[in-house]
């Protein structure tokens, strides 16, 4: 049986039978991997504690016929702070749910892996505004999935400028000539925040004080954008305290 080794982040786990679990992982080398971890729900399990969601682990797998089997697991970062705080945990859950949605099996995406790792690292530092960190992660996730939103040029004709209309379907800001009637207005504060979400440094994001109203509006827009382009809302998103 072929063995392989990779590092990955645990996205979610399902119970299987009496003591096993199916683990969804985002690995650095193989994209999403679904694997069986045997006996991990027993109290004396050798690596059960390492395969909880958010854990960044170094793993060895057997290649199975259907699902691979986790053979060894070493912890790289447990992201324990994310687990132990309810608000951070809700943000982290939304992050891994998003990654689970976008990642494909046998399709390596180092950028997706690093994005999730960066997002979780920023959350683990317990930022002042975890929901802003989450929104930044989600916007970058949609961008990686191929739906990069444009805020500094018209997404229809390409005319540069700070356009004040936003269309989810068109994939970004629109100039006055391209804007369909009834398109939603993008105020300058939200536009600035959205651009920061897409490009600013992680550490800066979690600490920047923005009007709560702008923060909520930008968050809702990010989620509508993601829902429209990825086809389904993220379930954990509703439970993030804002």
């Amino acid at each position: 049986m072929a063995l392989y080794r990779d590092q990955g982040i645990v996205l979610r786990t399902y119970k299987l039978g009496e003591t096993d679990r199916i683990v969804h992982l985002l690995t650095q080398g193989r994209g999403k991997v679904r694997a069986v971890a045997k006996g991990v729900r027993r109290p004396g399990s050798r690596f059960g504690g390492r395969l909880e969601p958010f854990s960044h682990v170094d793993l060895q797998f057997y290649e199975g016929r259907n699902l691979d089997i986790v053979n060894q697991a070493e912890l790289i970062t447990p992201f324990a702070t994310v687990r132990s705080d309810w608000a951070l945990s809700a943000c982290g859950s939304t992050m891994v749910e998003g990654a689970d949605r976008v990642a494909q099996e046998d399709e390596r995406s180092n950028r997706l892996f690093l994005l999730l790792l960066d997002g979780l690292r920023t959350l683990a530092a317990a930022p002042q505004f975890p929901a802003v960190v989450l929104d930044a992660y989600l916007l970058r996730l949609v961008s990686l999935a191929g739906y990069h939103p444009y805020f500094d040029a018209c997404s229809s004709c390409g005319a540069p400028g700070a356009h004040g209309v936003f269309s989810i379907a068109a994939g970004g800001a629109l100039c006055r000539r391209c804007a369909p009637p009834g398109a939603s207005v993008l105020d300058p504060a939200s536009r600035a925040l959205l651009m920061a979400l897409l490009g600013a440094d992680w550490a800066v994001l979690g600490a920047t004080a923005v009007e709560p109203r702008t923060r909520r509006a930008a968050g809702a827009l990010v989620h509508s954008f993601l829902t429209y382009h990825l086809g389904k809302p993220l379930r954990a998103w509703d439970l993030v305290p804002r």
Partner: peptide
């Protein structure tokens, strides 16, 4: 866990 081994315990636990 009672009856367990330190060396096999995971880091979190």
């Amino acid at each position: 866990p009672v009856g367990g081994d330190l060396e096999y315990a995971d880091e979190v636990t």
